[in-house]
């Protein structure tokens, strides 16, 4: 195999030289080993093209098939969420212990006072899965004067609203405004904060355990200031 043969086969493989060209046919006639190598490379190239097409089809199908359950699975595997789940597990243990004490106290009170029920809160489960959902402003109707949401913050916790400008691709970019800690489910930005909010923006609301430690986030909400 000469350096010239190498160049020729590289050119054919890259599509720069037609395999039906007289130059290539003469080279192959002169060197049968070249024909064998080309045949093997052509087979490999075709297999790669088949695999590429298969991969693109499979990915397109998978993107179309992915649903909210899959988002939840990815979220559960995220390191920050797994750390939170461990903390949630500890909280659950504390609540379970408190509930057990409450049940014992309740049972003793029932036996002692002839069935009168104690005024105790009963723990009904870990509330950390309560969905945090941004509601207002929504696309095309918001004036960005008030932000509202549903969902709960942990006991003693708070909410924080973050407003993002859109990047060049139309995805959330730089955070332009961040509220202070909110204990209600609404936030009214000040005039100076309002001035920083662009006409089109994304926003999320986060719940925090102790005003600092992240607990949960709403999905990003895209909104348009119709009355700037």
């Amino acid at each position: 195999m000469t350096a010239n043969d190498d160049e020729l086969i590289a050119s054919v493989l890259a599509g720069d030289l037609d395999p039906d060209s007289a130059l290539w046919k003469a080279a192959v006639a002169r060197n049968p080993a070249l024909a064998k190598r080309w045949e093997e490379l052509r087979t490999l190239r075709e297999a790669l093209e088949r695999t590429g097409a298969d991969e693109r089809d499979s990915l397109a199908r998978s993107k179309a098939d992915a649903g909210p359950h899959d988002v939840a699975s990815v979220r559960r595997a995220a390191p920050v969420v797994r750390a939170g789940a461990r903390a949630g597990g500890r909280r659950l243990a504390y609540f379970a212990a408190a509930a057990a004490v409450a049940l014992i106290v309740g049972f003793v009170a029932y036996r002692q006072f002839g069935g009168s029920s104690p005024e105790q809160d009963v723990f009904l489960g870990d509330q950390s899965d309560a969905a945090l959902r941004a509601t207002e402003p929504t696309l095309d109707v918001g004036d960005a004067h008030e932000f509202a949401w549903t969902g709960d913050a942990p006991p003693g916790g708070a909410f924080v609203v973050k407003v993002f400008e859109l990047d060049a691709a139309g995805a959330p970019g730089r955070c332009v405004v961040e509220s202070g800690s909110c204990t209600e489910r609404t936030w009214r930005p000040s005039e100076s904060e309002l001035a920083k909010i662009p006409n089109e923006f994304f926003w999320v609301v986060e719940s925090r355990r102790d005003a600092v430690t992240f607990e949960d986030s709403s999905a990003p909400q895209r909104a348009l200031r119709s009355r700037p």
Binding site: L59, A66, D70, R75, A78, V80, V81, F214
Partner: peptide, 24 residues
């Protein structure tokens, strides 16, 4: 880096992974 919004967006982008596993 732990930015919650980015985590959320990334989770949505990677939701195709379980679907890829099912497909393959």
């Amino acid at each position: 880096a732990g930015e919650p919004l980015a985590v959320e967006l990334l989770c949505r982008r990677l939701a195709c992974v379980p679907a890829i596993l099912r497909d393959r």
